[in-house]
Amino acid sequence: MRVTAPLPPERPVADAVAGHWVDRRAPRRTRPYLRLARIDRPIGWWLLLLPCWWSAALAAVASGAAFPNPVHLALFLVGAVAMRGAGSTYNDIADRDLDAQVERTRSRPLPSGQVRARHAAVFLVAQTLVGLAVLLQFNADAILVGIASLAPVAIYPFMKRVMPMPQLVLGLAFAWGALMGWVAVFGRLDAPAWLLYAGTIAWVVGYDTIYAVQDIEDDAIAGIRSSARTFGPRLKSAIGACYAAAAGLAGLAAWSAGAGVVGLLGVAGFAAHLGWQTIRLEAGDGRGALRLFRSNRDAGLILFAGLALDAVLRAWMK
């Protein structure tokens, strides 16, 4: 009689969404892989997706289109989920020893023993192939720009060992979508796309510094570098500066693309939300920091709505 090996014990992931369908409905054998891809933490793919949507909306404003290309928006959604999962899997493979030393991350599938490294590597390849299939739907210039994004993704997991602000490298990777929506429409990169990319990098550094507040003590013990540790007592003012740069550069991008009042109001709403986050942040409140970090989905949707509505109104008024 064949004996089935027992499944490894399930452990809740510290910063996952409580009561997520992964924990309630997914087959048990798939749950560690879904957690490895961060499906139970959708904020990650939202933060990867939103710059793509901003860029697509900005391109719609500049080109006079009535709305961001809906096919592009859908492709960016699928690609963001796949590549967020691939990036997280790669990061967890590289960081599995460090993750075992940090309270918030030691329950992840690799350090907790729910998934073996070689199985995670196979899963990584599968997710990357999905992302590649999505990328190949765009024009040749967009494909080249998308492939170039792999460079910062590849080096990011190792930067937390050698530089005081690895969030800068994360910003280079997570902000890449700010280039993709524009090049997918125009086949080139112009000033509005580069301004949006620079502003998105500042946004990423700001929100990931908030996220890192959860781990300041454990990171110090494990020797992990982070901007939250680097900024120290200047934490709130540094995040405020990052967010001010993000809003200012997004405003310049919108203006240079020809956005009108509605688009700039979207930028203002985005800026107001970022300011609210900065005011509410408390350095010793890890739970509060996680809530503020997650609220960046709403901040990003405000900016997207403003830019997309600006395109709609400008086309309607022609």
Rank of each mutant, 00 (worst) to 15 (best):
R2N: 12
L7A: 15
P8D: 10
E10K: 13
R11N: 11
V13A: 12
A16P: 07
A26Q: 00
A26P: 06
R31C: 10
L34I: 05
R35W: 03
G44K: 09
W45E: 01
W46V: 03
P51W: 01
A65F: 03
F67V: 14
A74C: 11
S88W: 13
Y90M: 14
A100I: 06
E103S: 14
P111G: 06
P111T: 00
V115K: 00
V115C: 05
A121L: 15
A126L: 15
V134L: 06
A140F: 11
G146A: 11
A148T: 10
A151F: 14
P157H: 05
R161H: 12
P166A: 06
L172V: 11
A175Q: 03
A178I: 10
M180I: 08
A184I: 08
D190V: 11
L196P: 05
W203F: 13
W203T: 03
V204E: 02
D215Q: 04
R229E: 09
R229P: 04
R229G: 13
T230I: 01
T230D: 08
Y243K: 05
G263T: 08
H273G: 12
H273T: 07
G284Y: 07
G286Y: 07
A289S: 15
S295E: 13
S295F: 06
N296G: 04
G300P: 00
L313S: 04
